[in-house]
Amino acid sequence: MDVKEILAHCDHTLLKQESTWEQIKAVCDEGLKYGCASVCIPPAYVKQAADYVGNDLKICTVIGFPNGYSTTEVKVFETEDAIRSGADEIDMVINIGWAKDGRWDELLEEIKSVKASCKGRILKVIVEACLLTQEEKVELCHIVTEAGADFIKTSTGFSTGGATREDVALFKSNVGPDVRVKAAGGIRTLQDAEDFIRLGADRLGTSAIVKLVKGMEVQGY
């Protein structure tokens, strides 16, 4: 698979707590240079980044991140604030405890509420697959589909595990035709990226792929 094609699937990501504006700006520069799908950055930097890149790069940010257990009202407020600041895409974390409790109706309503707050922007729903049973993963595929979200996303990258090939294949097989899959967490090689795309991931949440490509350029590949 062509490297440019892989990069076009990447949400170039920097979500470390200690991230500075200079680091965020560098990620934006890289996202622009390498033709990434978006940059995924902390909410506090969304307005500054949106002003910096203009209409040349999509800005993605996170809601209820990384634990997912803030209230629905807080997630809605966070989403509205992010959209006002210029976010083009929202990656929200579900209440994982509700999934473990089988509170599917509440999860459905929460995702619907956040989707409505997106005002037409893309919504990706992070389900933190490493904490779920197979049955819970399948049920969440149905919930995310019913809620009208645009993507189901495997992981925050801040829990006990990241994306797996098995989970991407499972999600692709169980979401509706209008829901895409985002693999995130632990995508460290071009082979990883290509595998996930071939299994059905439309987006990759990663900081490593651009670094790899930059390294290849330095080495003259």
Rank of each mutant, 00 (worst) to 15 (best):
G86V: 09
C130M: 09
G86K: 15
P43D: 11
A50W: 09
G102T: 03
D202C: 01
A82K: 01
C130S: 15
E217H: 08
A163H: 14
K182W: 14
I126S: 04
V93R: 00
G31K: 10
V175T: 14
L15I: 03
S85Q: 15
C130Q: 08
N55V: 05
A37P: 11
T156V: 07
T79V: 01
Q48S: 12
G200I: 02
A49G: 12
L199F: 15
R103T: 03
L14K: 13
N95C: 08
K75R: 06
K16W: 03
L123N: 01
G64W: 03
G120R: 10
D101F: 15
L57H: 12
V74C: 00
N174G: 11
A8D: 06
S159A: 06
A169H: 09
E22A: 10
P177Q: 14
C118L: 06
S155C: 10
K58M: 11
K211Y: 14
D150E: 07
V218E: 08
I96L: 11
R165C: 00
D150C: 05
F77P: 01
F77Q: 06
I152M: 12
M216L: 10
N95I: 04
A37C: 04
T20P: 04
T206N: 14
G215D: 05
E136A: 05
A208N: 05
G102L: 06
Y45A: 13
C141K: 05
R180E: 11
G185V: 02
G176M: 05
K47F: 10
A193Q: 02
K115D: 13
K47V: 03
A147R: 06
I63K: 02
C130K: 03
I122E: 10
E136F: 14
T154M: 06
D29N: 14
R165Y: 13
T145P: 15
